[in-house]
Every structure is written in structure tokens, then in C-alpha cells.
Design a protein around this nucleic acid. Sequence first.
DNA 1: ACAGCCATGTAACTCGTTACATGATTAC
DNA 2: GTAATCATGTAACGAGTTACATGGCTGT
Lengths: 207, 207
Amino acid sequence: MGQDLPVTSYALLGLLTFGDELTGYELKQRADATLRFYWVSPAMSQVYSELARLTEHGLVLTRSRRSNSQGRSSGRGASDGAETSGSTTYRLSAKGRRALETWMRGTEPGFSVLKHPVALRLLLGHVVDPGTTIAMLEAHVEALDTEREALVRVREGLRGSDGPGQPFRHPSLVADWGLDYFDNERRIVTTLIERLHEEELREEADG
Amino acid sequence: MGQDLPVTSYALLGLLTFGDELTGYELKQRADATLRFYWVSPAMSQVYSELARLTEHGLVLTRSRRSNSQGRSSGRGASDGAETSGSTTYRLSAKGRRALETWMRGTEPGFSVLKHPVALRLLLGHVVDPGTTIAMLEAHVEALDTEREALVRVREGLRGSDGPGQPFRHPSLVADWGLDYFDNERRIVTTLIERLHEEELREEADG
DNA sequence: ACAGCCATGTAACTCGTTACATGATTAC
DNA sequence: GTAATCATGTAACGAGTTACATGGCTGT
């Protein structure tokens, strides 16, 4: 009991706690919309293989549309020849919900990991000319604006059920967190650009 | 020309641009000290395998201590029986420096990826009781303080050569960025804790 | 009819980790 | 002498990606 799955499995499982029954495709879209800001967007193929694993462990239940051979993917035997077409939806099982609770209460979250290629390249700024670094940072500010806008749209979609006790309360808190993060990062990077600009001008003046 | 290496390879290569000649072990320590805040800390074993690859590509040069069989690890032949002991140091080659420049100028950095287990669990806060979520956030604040302190020590170590034009100018800029990030995150999370506390009290009052 | 999205997977591969194994040097 | 740190790797594995393959369904 309590075989450990990777965090991404629980993340996908968690996306199924918001009520509905989703296809792998829809789950991927949900991950792209929200999960990608705080975790990752797994590839389509990974979504399907994670769902297969979650099904094996009994943490999700399946239902087929437009075809018989309903649910459960009962194990191991021969004779499965009718899974040709139609989509499969997945929903959280009672066991899945318990597993999620156990995971959230019983395991340490661990610290966040940031893979920030822009910061990495700034660290190595002495390798290239200042102009290159400044241009990179300016492009990053634009990218931040784009990402922020996307998150704003997500946040907007939660309005109406984002109050205390309502279903999207926690997603909206996390979205606010993300928006604040973007604002702050924009401010920092803008300041950095100014600092680098000043230095460059001073250097040109001196020779 | 221009075979693409993973970003982590360039990150390690970049750590060799600050002058000295390092062993794999020392390189790992450097990565642990600074790189881990903006990128990742590769495992010891990966440091060695990356160094082997960088050597193959001619981007770093090796030197042996306390033993003959010096440098270059010239290829492919039979007869290598004297690599028993002593440490090997690595330094950036001219080709390596060119490769790094090309990479920094010619490839898109891409957007940052954040794997934030605390944010993920906050997103799923409706699965557990508010107390669990609040406790998790409080633990996160403590972890932030610890990490921030570690970064402060790194920043302090750069003092004296962190001015414009000096060798650790860019590392110090990135460190300042990181410190600001930690400050901001602490502020956000503290606010979130307060919000959740208020809600919990109100809920208890209402029943 | 064709484009674009919905829907599901397989195969090959790389990155990166943990566990394991070995031995030298330094500090107490 | 023995514990900690320095130093270097190998082997097995898992997570996650890209490329590929397939086909249905929907709007124009």
C-alpha cells in the first residue's frame, strides 16, 4: 500500500478532482492551461501513459463512448479486439482520492526547482557583449508579458466560483500567486536592463 | 559544426569561464553553490559524464595530477592501464569558448520552467483540510529563509569583484535577482497564509 | 475535398537520478 | 586508526521528449 508514483502522476490525478470526467486529450489541455505555470505540461504521449498507469493502480476509472467494452480494462487475458475507435473518459476513483489525500498529507513537498535559461545566460554575461545580454533581457520581458496575459485569461475563467469555500478557490489563489510572480519578475528584469544600460554608457564614455 | 548539447552541458562549460582549472568534484561544488538557484545541480555522476562528453568534443582540456598519462585522453586505441589514481582538472579550450559564445548568441533561451510542489499542492488544497495547507505554507516560508541565507552567503563571497567590468559582475547581478525573488515569494506566501487563516476563522464562526 | 481539430497510442531516445563500488588524502 | 572529505567512475533505471502512425469527426 502506498506505492510511490512520480509527482506528475499526482498532478494529473489532482486535475481530475475538479468534478468532471475527462478524456486524455482534455486532460492535456487542462494541464497546458494551468499546470504548466507551476509544474510542467507533460507531452500528449505521457498523459496517456500516466493514465494507463493510474488505471492499472485503480486510481482512476474509465468509461468508453461510442463503443461497448466498457471500463475497467480488466486484466491480463487475451481477447481484446474491439478497442478500435471512440474516446475514453477518466474519472477519479475513491481509491484515487484516498491516494491523493495520503500523498498530500504524508509526503514532504520538497523545495521548488527553477530552470531559468535567461538567468543562466545572464550569469555568463561576460562571455558576450553587453548588447546581446540586454537584448535577451528585453525579449524576456516581452515573453513575461505574453505569459502573464495567458495566466490572466485563466484567472478570469475562474471568476464566479473563486470565493472561499467555492470549487475554484485554490486554483484562483495559485493564479494570483503566479500573477504576482510575473509582476515581480518584470520589475526585476527591467531594473537589470537599466543597470546594464548605464554601465554600457559609462564604459563608452571612458573608453 | 554546432552539434547541439543539452543546456546543462553549456552551464557546466560556463562555470569554467571564470578563470580556474577545476576537478569534477570542485565543479560539482560550484554548481551546488550557485547554479542550483537558477538551473539544476547535476548529480556527481552526471558531472563526470558531461565532462567526458565535453572532452570528446574538444570543448575542455584535461590535465592530470600526480601521475603521467597527461591530458587529451587520446582516442580509441588499446592500452590504457595507468589511469589508476590522482585527480584530473578541466579547463575551457578556445574551441569551448567559441562554442559557448555561439550558443549564447545563436540560440533562443526559451522560457523558464518552474517546478513548484508547494504551489501544486496549494492548487489541490480542497482535497485536504485548511490546517494542512497552512502548515505546508508555513514550512515553505522557513525553507525560503534557509535558501535565502545560503544565497546571501554566495553573494557575500562575490564582494570585492562584483563591480562593473569585474569578473563576478554578472554572477552578482543574478544573485541579486535571486534574493529579490526570495523576498517576493516570502511576501506572497505570508499573505496567502493570512488569507487562509481568516477564511478558516470565519468558517468556524459560521459553522 | 480538404483543413484542422479531436483522440490515441508506439518506439526510440536522452537526460538525469540513485545505488553501488573503489580508493586516496586529510584531520583528529 | 578511523572518520570525513576528496575523487572518480559504472550500472540500472525512470521520467519525459520527439517522431511517427493512425483514424474519426467537423466545418467550409
